[in-house]
């Protein structure tokens, strides 16, 4: 009799559904709605590189010491500079960073004595071309420019 009543009132079904709905609490949802909802990466996340500039006068913080290029295991950083005759210091001319070969180990960031080169929390590095993966100085300072799609 009890068995029959259980069957009629679908007790087992509701017990099962209760387990399902218990796990529907937003706290238990692990899926991120990616493009709509940005994942919050950690503060120390090693993502896209950035060459910091002094916010007051817009000059680069880089002193062209070449330590990042020496620290890089892949040798993907190329720094060129020319000597300034007046200040007797090296002025940065070009700075290229090949993100296609970068493994984001963070050794360049550690090597930098003036905190000019930094790996940021930006993680979207996809481009349409291979050349687009090689970041030049302007791109490193201002962030990547959106690449127009060519047919």
């Amino acid at each position: 009799m009890v068995k029959l009543l259980r069957k009629i009132f679908l007790v087992d079904l509701f017990t099962g559904l209760m387990v399902t709905f218990r796990n529907q609490r937003p706290k238990y949802i692990y899926t991120e709605q990616y493009p709509g909802e940005r994942p919050k990466v950690a503060e120390r996340y090693r993502g896209a590189p950035r060459l910091n500039i002094n916010p007051e006068n817009g000059e680069t913080l880089c002193i062209s010491c070449n330590l990042c290029a020496l620290a890089c295991p892949e040798g993907l950083i190329v720094v060129t500079s020319e000597r300034n005759e007046q200040t007797k210091r090296k002025d940065l001319t070009t700075f290229t960073y090949d993100t296609s070969r970068c493994m984001f180990c963070g050794l360049c960031e550690d090597a930098c004595p003036v905190d000019a080169l930094e790996l940021t929390q930006d993680f979207e590095l996809a481009t349409y071309t291979r050349e687009g993966q090689i970041w030049d100085r302007q791109m490193l300072e201002e962030g990547p420019r959106p690449t127009p799609y060519k047919c």
Binding site: V41, A42, E43, R44, Y45, R46, M103, G106
Partner: peptide
């Protein structure tokens, strides 16, 4: 791991 060293899998 991510909060400690900035990477999840290849941590370094």
């Amino acid at each position: 791991f991510e909060k400690y060293c900035g990477a999840r899998l290849t941590t370094h």
